[in-house]
């Protein structure tokens, strides 16, 4: 466990808790893409199928349970409890445009042609693009609440920190995970525009507005 990976996981947990906090305290899913959260649910379920079969550490299992349960809770809040506040008209990204390619790629590029490994690769590829509906929604609505910006910053930082972790592991352990690294770079690059807006606006106390 490198420091970067721990920092990345903690940033990920922070993002998940920030989102739950925002929806629960404002009793509103306004500005939040339900589609992104649905896909994150798929990411965790398809990635952690080994939750009951392979034990890595208490930390690993605890985080898996946390990610799955928190993402299910988030989807529940958006589509059921605070359904009336869900802004479906601005959450128009076609999920199949990312789910199908991720599945096809997972069938082609995986570490073994087994259900588990194909499911794992699908999860990695899907996670890389799962944020797209949320980023599209921010551009469509033209702005994002501050806490939503902080949520996105923490979420984008998590995989950026993992990239540092992968560099660290390659340098010290001499091996790397091509699928995870490739997808992780794509995932982090997709936040590029948001990171720019975040650092030029939100940090200076201004609302995150996508310049028209």
């Amino acid at each position: 466990m490198t420091l970067f990976r721990l920092a990345g996981d903690l940033s990920h947990v922070l993002a998940i808790l920030l989102l739950l906090y925002k929806i629960w305290t404002t009793k509103s899913a306004a500005g939040i893409s339900g589609k992104t959260q649905l896909m994150f649910c798929m990411v965790y379920v398809t990635r952690y199928l080994d939750l009951f079969t392979s034990f890595i550490s208490v930390y690993n299992s605890t985080m898996k349970v946390l990610f799955i349960s928190a993402s299910v809770a988030t989807v529940y809040l958006i589509y059921f409890k605070f359904k009336a506040t869900y802004d479906g008209n601005h959450d128009t990204f076609r999920m199949e445009f990312v789910i199908v390619p991720a599945l096809i790629l997972a069938l082609i590029w995986n570490y073994a042609f087994t259900f588990f490994e194909i499911s794992w690769a699908f999860s990695i590829f899907l996670e890389a693009v799962a944020i797209l509906p949320q980023l599209f929604m921010v551009t469509k609505t033209g702005e994002a609440e501050n806490i939503t910006s902080h949520y996105l910053f923490a979420l984008g930082s998590y995989r950026a920190l993992y990239i540092l972790n992968w560099i660290d592991r390659y340098y010290f352990e001499g091996h790397w995970d091509p699928i995870a690294v490739t997808a992780g770079i794509v995932q982090t690059v997709l936040y590029g525009d948001f990171f720019y807006l975040y650092f030029t606006r939100v940090i200076k106390g201004r609302k995150l507005q996508v310049l028209p």
Partner: peptide, 10 residues
Amino acid sequence: SDGHNAHDEL
């Protein structure tokens, strides 16, 4: 570990 199959990361 044989690298890949031990998916030890989240």
